[in-house]
């Protein structure tokens, strides 16, 4: 089936139990837990570029690691190419895993300081027999050139490269095993503006040329708008809005998305924010509010918000989890 999404996540749950003191345990107090993902569902089509946006602690990084199988979920289904990766046995999982690779945030800790660039990229190629052994060096050179580095970089150590160059190496390493899905977790956040644009363009080119599917996790709405076709907005472990980027940015249907968009400092002095910034800070994910998780900060919260909000479907595959989604869209910008 051509239309089957490459990645389909359904009702995914993840909790991190907090350490409980011995006394509390003996007194029979329930174990408290951090809610990192609660009933998260979304899908990414083949070749699509999906952006996951949210503030720190909203669970976006956890979601990326769940998808990659670096963390086991506490509930729900993750289907990759039709297979439920939470249920496959370890050997099959390793083969599946290779089809999903990650680009990390910190270009300084994502490369082993003691391994030359050439080996870092060549090791997985050799190990998985991607190309015959005598062609590994050529493949490494080809990958380096693909990400915009000279082939001579193979003989360098990570400490000899700049942050942007290391990020390119990280991308080349991820591409070495010819994955179908690339998860990029804040992959450009640590980079300077001009270098960031270089890496963003590289990712966009790679996606187009190699038909890669991209899951791009970021706190930066501008970057997501630039790179992604669809976007999911996370708040306190739940996905509060999902849809085509153009629709979500033009007609946000969740008050949180609206506030997020209004908070971006626009590089345009004539657009000095008239809207008052969102008050307060996100509540602790240990005891999230009942009903709508956003109601404690929502400028238009009403009594109904204390009950769990429904997923409101809007035109064009756009949805929001808010009692008043249609109202928010209508009163929008």
């Amino acid at each position: 089936m051509a239309d089957r999404p490459l990645l389909a996540v359904e009702a995914l749950d993840k909790y991190f139990p907090l350490r409980r003191s011995l006394v509390a345990g003996m007194m029979g107090h329930p174990r408290r837990r951090v809610q990192a993902a609660k009933e998260v569902s979304f899908a990414i089509g083949k070749g699509e570029s999906f952006g996951l946006v949210g503030e720190s602690g909203c669970g976006k990084t956890t979601l990326g690691r769940l998808v990659l199988g670096l963390l086991p979920p506490d509930g729900g289904v993750i289907r990759f190419d039709g297979q439920d990766i939470t249920k496959v046995e370890p050997t099959a999982r390793r083969a599946l895993r290779r089809q999903m690779q990650m680009v990390f945030q910190d270009p300084y800790s994502s490369l082993n300081p003691r391994i030359r660039i050439g080996s870092a990229i060549g090791e997985p190629i050799r190990l998985h027999g991607i190309v015959p052994p005598d062609e590994v060096a050529g493949e490494v050179a080809r990958l380096l050139e693909r990400v915009g580095l000279p082939a001579s970089a193979a003989s360098r150590y990570p400490s000899e490269l700049s942050g942007g160059q290391r990020q390119r190496v990280g991308i080349a390493r991820a591409l070495s095993v010819r994955p179908k899905l690339l998860v990029a977790d804040e992959a450009v956040s640590g980079l300077d503006v001009s270098v960031r644009a270089q890496v963003l363009n590289l990712l966009a080119d790679l996606r187009r040329d190699l038909g890669l599917t991209l899951m791009f996790i970021s706190h930066d709405l501008g970057v997501i708008e630039y790179l992604c076709e669809t976007v999911g907005v996370m708040y306190l472990g739940t996905m509060v809005e999902y849809g085509p980027t153009s629709a979500v940015f033009a007609r946000p249907a969740h008050p949180y998305t609206r506030a997020l968009l209004a908070s971006i400092p626009r590089a345009d002095p004539s657009a000095v924010g008239q809207e008052t910034p969102l008050a307060g800070e996100p509540p602790s994910p240990v005891d999230p509010p009942s009903g709508c998780p956003f109601r404690t900060r929502c400028p238009s919260a009403r009594p109904l918000c204390e009950t769990p909000p429904p997923r409101v479907m809007l035109p064009g595959g756009h949805w929001a989890v808010c009692h008043f989604a249609t109202e928010v869209v209508r009163n929008g910008r």
């Binding site: 895993r97 290779r98 999903m100 998985h128 390493r173």
Partner: peptide, 8 residues
């Protein structure tokens, strides 16, 4: 983590 993802 990257090494784990690469199937080592």
């Amino acid at each position: 983590q990257a090494a784990r993802l690469l199937g080592f």
